[in-house]
Amino acid sequence: MVRRRKDGPVVQADDVETDWAALVLRVRDHQDKAAFAALFRHFAPRVKAFLMKSGADATLAEECAQDVMATLWQKANLFDPARASVATWVFTIARNRRIDALRKARRPEPEELPWGPEPEPDQAEALESQQETDRLGAALAQLPDKQRALIERAFYGDLSHSEIAAETGLPLGTIKSRIRLALDRLRQQMS
């Protein structure tokens, strides 16, 4: 039914006279499929148009509109006519679905994680790694005791220079100098 307002524009009667809140309450209270169908006919195309105007392509807009209407059916109990109109509620859901879709599109794909046991290391690599560890141990043993103790606290104890200074009572500058000298000696012996 089409009605003409006094000021002239043509308006669909169902847009003016339909109590959308009452229809949502019928969906909420009675799972009324006819009420939902009326809501769907009215809001689904408007939601799709809204989403397309906000930059979604037709396929995404259609999927989001379907999701919004499914949410209306499933969560009609969350609608409070005292807080917002049905249109405000529906378009808020649509806006949130659009934001979720944008976030999902921008989210990087997780890297593939290997399943199953780790492959056995190559024997040559394992031997080389063990030899390197042995050389490092021998180089550490040749350091003066004061330098070796600081290196062990810094790297094996995972302490910062400030924490080592607090533990030992040595000045921070002394800690840094000894560690720097020890690292220089280790580099020379390992190369």
Rank of each mutant, 00 (worst) to 15 (best):
V2Q: 15
V10G: 10
V11L: 11
D15Y: 08
E17N: 08
D19S: 04
V24Y: 03
V24E: 02
V24G: 06
L25V: 00
L25I: 08
V27L: 07
R28F: 06
D29C: 04
H30R: 13
F36P: 04
A38M: 11
A38L: 10
L39I: 01
R41L: 10
H42M: 04
H42W: 00
A44H: 12
F50G: 12
M52N: 08
M52L: 12
K53S: 12
K53F: 08
S54T: 11
A58W: 01
L60E: 11
A61S: 10
E62V: 02
E63V: 01
Q66L: 01
D67K: 03
V68E: 00
V68H: 09
A70R: 15
A70C: 15
T71K: 12
T71W: 12
L72D: 02
W73T: 08
L78G: 08
L78E: 10
A84Q: 02
A84F: 04
A87L: 05
A94M: 00
N96W: 07
R97I: 07
L102E: 04
R107D: 03
W115P: 09
G116E: 01
G116K: 08
P121M: 09
S129W: 14
Q131S: 14
T133K: 15
G137W: 03
A139L: 04
L140P: 11
L143S: 00
L143A: 00
L143P: 06
P144Y: 03
R153I: 02
A154Y: 06
F155Y: 14
G157C: 04
L159H: 03
E163N: 09
A166K: 08
E167M: 09
L170N: 13
G173E: 08
S177T: 02
R178N: 13
I179V: 15
L183T: 09
R185F: 03
S191P: 07
